[in-house]
């Protein structure tokens, strides 16, 4: 099978900015021979109805992510830091604009 898929194009992740002022958001992936082709395919595939004003493409191999198993190590510590939130602090109702 490895011989059969010798010419398989690499996978790219696609991010689209829906309009000015918003972040690019991940919308899916596609196959392309190189970055330039990936951009063109992303335009055809993910923005056929004015869904975006800007596109990023990134080789899927280049994406590094935290895994589900890392969840505690990465995210649990923020659970006990309630003092990072404004509602942690009691302020009398009589104090305006705070």
């Amino acid at each position: 099978m490895s011989d059969e898929i010798k010419h398989e194009w690499p996978l790219f992740e696609v991010f689209v900015r829906a309009k000015r002022g918003l972040n690019h958001v991940h919308v899916g992936s596609l196959r392309a021979a190189d970055h330039e082709m990936a951009l063109h395919h992303a335009r055809d595939l993910y923005t056929r109805r004015n869904e975006g004003v800007s596109i990023w493409v990134v080789r899927s191999d280049d994406v590094v992510s935290s895994g589900p198993g890392d969840k505690d190590a990465f995210f649990a510590p923020s659970g006990d830091k309630a003092y990072r939130h404004p509602t942690y602090y009691a302020i009398p109702d009589s104090v305006p604009h705070i």
Binding site: M1, E4, I5, E8, L11, G28, S29, L30, R31, D44, L45, R48
Partner: peptide, 26 residues
């Protein structure tokens, strides 16, 4: 436009299948 959408739908779905380790060429 409709037939192009169908190609697009196929590709969105192959993309979803690839997240599970499937290979779209395969």
């Amino acid at each position: 436009a409709k037939v192009q959408d169908e190609a697009g739908h196929g590709l969105y779905l192959y993309s979803a299948a690839e997240t599970l380790g499937a290979d779209r060429g395969d």
